[in-house]
Nucleic acid binder design. Structure first.
Lengths: 234, 234
DNA sequence: CGAGACGTTGAACCTATTCAACACTGGTGG
DNA sequence: CCACCAGTGTTGAATAGGTTCAACGTCTCG
């Protein structure tokens, strides 16, 4: 079991945009209400439909958030890194998780009962603002993606998705801006609403055009301007 | 200009799930901070990209929320009725509206500066819970739609969309459950990610199967069970 | 009544999927 | 240590679902 040190816990919580406005004493108090669990790569944190009583925060590692049809088709909703939250914000009676969360790498996850989080909110207006802003942000992102899916061809969707990933997770590297997450063709497909095969074809084509470079589980952008153009963002 | 009476204002605000937990005195106070504007059908309330400094509430009428590509392709995000909110919840500096709001019918809209709303939130934990629950709900809805668009054929998407509309706006009628909003083929297409033509074809086909009945700007469901089956929800 | 918006239907076309075969890679066990 | 095998990636060809373009019918409102 991958776990995280107490030092790491306080450091993570303290650095959360969430808790930016809290006094150290309050932070300690908040910290006491979180529990900490380690996960193996591929292990489920929760599944859609289960009663959703907790709010989670990634302390270390990466978490995959997705939804599935009955037939197993998957939409990858988000890849979360250290400091990001997920789970259920609504303490409404009987509310359930609407998505599924799985550890993508080995990960250390903090969590707090939604109810306890609600109590924290009640005492800290700045926390309320942060939380609302973050959820609104995600709603906008989801809406942008709806526009992508209903109005843009696969190539453009992939270009935009790669841009977003580079902005969020880009790291300088010999061959270009490396996306710092192991990402398979299948997963990239699940992010863009395309099949593995189509995704592979587009990646190949972007590669021979010199826009990106990619191998098994890694991808680096060589020509940001070119990618932006394909994404329709000039 | 369509406007609304003071009586209507207090009644609307008082009935909002939002303000359910407020004391009458607080409600009065909140009421004072709202301003009220009337809109003609088709008139814009705000547009994507504009600095977003207000939060809106539908007092009377219907409001259409959507996003557009540069080329004018549109995704209809939501149809809002009396009591529902929209606008910008994030008071973050420089944040802008990410979508566009247009009055679909003539409408009376209340609005409050995001900042003033933030102050209300600070004093009323129950209001915080309501707001978070509503935004989370919308995020889930957007996520469900992402799954639709990337994994389901048009017929199923339309069936699901009609089901959702009937649940939200259904009204008993001679010919079946009438969706109580004037809805064109084009708009239904924008809700499902299909062209007007495809939408028309599917509607015709549903009609000859006896599942629904529809004319210019109206649609009624005759066979809910059949529609559910097409929607894949048994 | 007429004009313009809305709705319908047909046929050609095209993008992305599906099905299939094959290549490469990395890790495991013999 | 190497061989094998499962997972991952690539590529091709056939297919299908939906779009596009086009023409025509029909309602409504000014």
């Amino acid at each position: 079991m991958h776990a995280c040190s107490i030092d790491l816990r306080l450091k993570i919580l303290g650095r959360l945009p969430f808790f930016a406005g809290l006094m150290p004493a309050d932070l300690q108090l908040a910290n006491q209400q979180f529990i900490e669990v380690g996960y193996q790569p591929g292990q489920a944190i929760y599944s859609g439909g289960q009663p959703g009583e907790r709010l989670f925060v990634v302390a270390d590692g990466k978490v995959k958030l997705f939804q599935q049809t009955a037939g197993g088709q998957t939409v990858l909703l988000d890849l979360l890194g250290s400091g990001e939250f997920f789970g259920n914000l609504s303490a409404a009676f009987g509310s359930a998780y609407t998505d599924t969360a799985v550890a993508q790498t080995s990960a250390c996850i903090l969590s707090i009962p939604t109810e306890a989080f609600a109590r924290l909110l009640a005492g800290h207006p700045s926390l309320v603002q942060q939380t609302l802003a973050l959820v609104s942000e995600r709603l906008s992102a989801a809406n942008r993606r709806l526009l992508q899916l209903s109005a843009m061809p696969v190539e453009q969707r992939i270009a935009q998705t790669l841009l977003r990933l580079v902005e969020k997770l880009g790291r300088a590297h010999d061959t270009g801006l490396l996306i710092d997450v192991p990402l398979s063709r299948e997963e990239l497909g699940e992010m863009t609403g395309a099949t593995t095969e189509t995704t592979s074809r587009i990646i190949s084509q972007l590669q021979s055009a010199g826009t990106i470079e990619s191998g098994r589980g890694w991808l680096a952008v060589k020509d940001m301007a070119g990618l932006r153009k394909l994404a329709g963002e000039e």
